[in-house]
Design a binder for these strands. Structure first.
Lengths: 223, 223
DNA sequence: CCAGCTTGCCGTACACCGTATCGATTGGCG
DNA sequence: CGCCAATCGATACGGTGTACGGCAAGCTGG
């Protein structure tokens, strides 16, 4: 009956063999386009052109453009999930997940912009959340604290990605040729001392600092 | 010569008295609209309608819609800036700024969605950054470490706001009637234990935890 | 007080967007 | 082979941002 898309957004659809188009191809083309030219370049007409297809054909496989964006996000979130067994050391486990998140968000700078447009969680996002909380299980916290700890790590990771996704955040830009040290003394000194390339090291240092705080506040003496 | 907007985005323009429109009025109407109906409702035609004016009139005071969004963001960022003198205790100072940021971001949930669309920093964002780094000055760190510490606090605050801006992040949603405890055991337990209203307390706890980590890693024994 | 000019305001138009509707085409199965 | 469901596509509608040029309102110099 429903020859158009699917009523449930996240439903897996049969690959429908023999045809040139399917949901994964559409989502993949959209992701590739966003990676190369940014999320604003992702339009139904443009994706269709890239696939050698007419615009309306996409709507056989997706219900709406917003749904497409949700599917793009959930696809990238799947890159975050750790497939090996998690380390039993909670610091190592949280670090592993945080670095995985960081890598995916850095590889697809449009992710946060895309996910601020619906907030709806896909199945992979749920898997990721489950894995985050599972990582802190060795701490044997009550569920509310476990949620809080997972939230802290997740929040820091997202926030850092949000900042580095827009390079203007810590370098001077066009309308501001230089930051006047007379009006921004601390800022000017900090920017001057910054090494521009060590973003990953900065992330790792911050993450270790956050984990230190968690250890002090939540880790019991007897592990 | 330039009767259209201004070539420098952030230029203050004269209030131009006697006329009904000016830049602040346009930006204010856009912010009010975003607050009430979300950023997607903010269109040039809609703002003009709200102001009792024809669409193209807005372009006398803004160069482009993207510029308008940048101006909206910088206006809200100005709410974050602390006007009293900062406490000399670095924990109190950072906490003050972080809570101020949290309040502004919670009051204008469209902020992050808007700021993920340009990343260009306005003058108020620079003032905010200056203030953040000034807050850690009592720690007497070298400039690179000061930048790192300010970044950690900022990242955590932004990340937390990013999560709470979209309520779907921690409650079940339409396509997922319930989270099956058999497939997501830890997640189900954590969600079940969560008190849905204490978002602010969660933020404060996380912030204290992050500050603990900073203290352990960066604070010298002799203050 | 008036001429002239600068500037704010706006009517029209264009390219692009997402997508509703429905007709044409195609592939796989009985 | 013939049927039928499913895929693909042409056309069209209402929305968007904004380029362009005309009109009018206010200030300024004579």
């Amino acid at each position: 009956m429903p020859n158009r898309a699917s009523e449930l957004v996240w439903d897996k659809t049969k690959p429908a063999p023999g045809r040139k188009l399917n949901r994964d191809v559409v989502v993949g083309a959209a992701i590739a386009l966003a990676d190369h030219e940014g999320l604003d370049a992702v339009s139904v007409r443009r994706i269709a052109t890239d696939l050698g297809v007419r615009p309306m054909s996409l709507y056989t496989h997706i219900a709406t453009k917003d749904d497409l964006v949700r599917l793009m996000v959930d696809e990238v979130v799947s890159e975050i999930i750790i497939h090996e067994e998690l380390p039993e050391d909670w610091r190592a486990a949280l670090g592993r997940i945080a670095h995985s998140s960081h890598a995916a968000l850095a590889a697809h700078p449009w992710m946060l912009q895309a996910s601020t447009r619906s907030g709806m969680l896909g199945p992979n996002a749920l898997r990721h959340a489950e894995q985050l909380i599972a990582a802190v299980a060795p701490l044997r916290l009550d569920p509310a604290d476990a949620w809080a700890v997972a939230g802290i790590v997740n929040d820091y990771t997202l926030g850092h990605a949000l900042r580095i996704a827009h390079p203007a955040a810590d370098t001077e830009q066009r309308p501001y040729p230089t930051i006047d040290p007379a009006v921004f003394p601390h800022l000017a000194r900090a920017l001057h001392a910054r090494t521009p390339d060590r973003d990953d090291a900065t992330f790792t240092t911050g993450l270790d600092t956050v984990l230190d705080g968690i250890e002090r506040r939540f880790a019991r003496p007897g592990r």
